[in-house]
Amino acid sequence: MSVDSKTVKKIASLARIHMDDAEVEALVPELNNILGWVEQLGEVDVSGVEPMTAVIPNTLRMRDDIVDADPLTAGGVRDKVLANAPVAEHGFFGVPKVIE
């Protein structure tokens, strides 16, 4: 698998990253280099081997259904949430008008 400049431009646009043509041209061989390494990994026969999701065997931890149990992941922090917003009015974020 490899990418051309058109694909790179599309990915950049989907990720909302601006790139000029020179940057795109520079990135094409870089990305293809990475894809080449990944393809090389594909040469190893892993049939019958379970995919590994973590180096240390671990299970997903879950939380109890309790509101604001841990202050670090609790609500009620509107000022903090809005602190970095370029525009905040009446408790809302203000963004350029997006309407269908």
């Binding site: 670090l72 992941t73 609790a74 609500g75 009620g76 922090v77 509107r78 903090k80 949430v81 809005l82 009446h90 408790g91 809302f92 974020f93």
Partner: peptide, 9 residues
């Protein structure tokens, strides 16, 4: 009220 039930997550 808007944004009062929003955690940092």
């Amino acid at each position: 009220e808007p944004n009062t039930q929003v955690s940092l997550v």
